[in-house]
């Protein structure tokens, strides 16, 4: 078997271990671990601001055979610190010709229920992978991230069974150095909550949270209005 022993999970959510990005990434890496891969993990938001941690990020990336980038969709793209990490990694890779073949995949989850809204973010990841000389092994999109809400997938239960099934299939393929099969991509991005239901309950959820903080009546405030 080719050298495909070490996987690096980079989590691109400010919520770190409590994020949906972590729920998805952790599930995939726990399967890869069962299949014999060694797993390393990094939280991008803690790595991009200081010289020592940037070096740590670069070292982690250099030593991985498979890099998994899992992040939330922010304003139709990736969160700013994740873009910064990509800029830094690319800059480093401009300096030398990489000696080994490294595989790269991306997992994008979003707040709106339509998984398809993540497509541009995946395209950005694919171009990043191309420019860094990584081998693109596929992208995964998950809609309705708020319904997972950072909880481990196994605990989320039946609702996310297709996500779990798809990630299991993806893990087997990735361990063998193959692309993520279309079957897995389709399963993972399958709607797991009716859109209208998500919108109605989502809106109710925002109101309940505002009530908890005593600002239910102020939720539509316009502090930056020119006319106040």
């Amino acid at each position: 078997m080719s050298n495909n022993n070490k996987a690096l999970l980079l989590i691109g959510s400010p919520k770190g271990e409590n994020s949906t990005s972590a729920s998805l990434g952790n599930h995939l890496t726990s399967r890869l671990e069962e299949l014999g891969m060694k797993i390393e993990k990094g939280f991008i938001h803690r790595l991009v601001n200081r010289e020592e941690t940037i070096q740590d990020l670069i070292r982690k990336v250099d030593s991985a055979d498979l890099i998994i980038l899992s992040f939330p969709l922010y304003v139709d793209s990736l969160p700013a610190p994740v873009i910064k990490a990509m800029e830094l990694i690319k800059e480093e890779r401009n300096k030398f010709e990489s000696k080994k073949s490294q595989n790269f995949i991306a997992i994008s989850n979003n707040g709106f229920p339509e998984a398809s809204q993540n497509i541009i973010a995946l395209q950005i990841c694919r171009i990043f992978s191309r420019d860094c000389g990584f081998v693109w092994k596929g992208g995964i999109v998950v809609g309705g991230g708020g319904a997972i809400n950072g909880i481990p997938l196994q605990e989320r239960g039946g609702m996310v069974r297709n996500v779990i099934k798809g990630l299991d299939i993806a893990a087997h393929a990735l361990k063998d150095g193959k692309d993520i099969p279309q079957e897995a991509i389709d399963l993972i991005s399958k709607k797991f909550i009716p859109y209208t239901f998500y919108r109605v309950f989502g809106n109710l959820g925002w109101r309940l949270q505002a009530r908890k903080y005593g600002v239910k009546k102020k939720i539509k405030d316009t502090p930056y209005s020119l006319t106040i």
């Binding site: 400010p14 994020s19 969160p79 949270q209 505002a210 600002v215 939720i219 405030d221």
Partner: peptide, 13 residues
Amino acid sequence: ACQGCFECWVKTP
């Protein structure tokens, strides 16, 4: 960086 807490929607709108 945005902390992803959504307090700008539900605590300090």
